[in-house]
Amino acid sequence: MSWRVDVRCTGSGGQGVALAAVVLAEAGLAGGFEVALTQEYGPEARGGASRADVVISDEEISNPQCGVPGILLALHDKAWRKFATGTPAVMASLASGATVAVVDRDRVVVDPATPGVLVLGFESVARDELRAKVVANMLAVGALGRLIARLDAELVETAVSTRSPGAFRELNVVAFRRGWAMMHDLLASPGAEEVSAGVAGARA
């Protein structure tokens, strides 16, 4: 049985979703998988609702496009509105349990009745604990790394390190580890496991 996960990273231009996607793709590649990363290159990448898609698979990726993602990251409300609530197929997939959304509650207003959502506070942890709001994307990388089955923590950490600008390298690695732990704890909490249990490519 082939294994494939489609991850869509979304946010507002400048939040670093493109770098988050690059890190995940690089970790997948280092793990021996095939990867394809596509992203929006228009004005969205500079302030609008931005998007970067990563496909990781254990076989040749015929279709590099991420259709309805298995895992959706939303770091900003306008991205959530565009790529989740504004996209009926994604809402249906969340409802059916085929998609899990990882959402930054500090930036996104989520209707508590929305199924399939895992909520974490990336920005507040980045700001209050790590004293650097800009590393919220690396917290998200940690959380997604923990959520994607078959991604190796060490390989993701190496990718975080090699892809970070020098001044942020250490802090990004700290943020990555913190994000990994946040998702780890969340998945251990009651009810959270079922949210990702049916998602292709995700680990419960």
């Binding site: 590649l29 095939e34 990867v35 394809a36 990363l37 596509t38 992203q39 290159y41 590099p64």
Partner: peptide, 10 residues
């Protein structure tokens, strides 16, 4: 096309 130009793969 643009997608291949900007896509990242191994």
């Amino acid at each position: 096309d643009e997608v291949i130009g900007h896509m990242r793969e191994g």
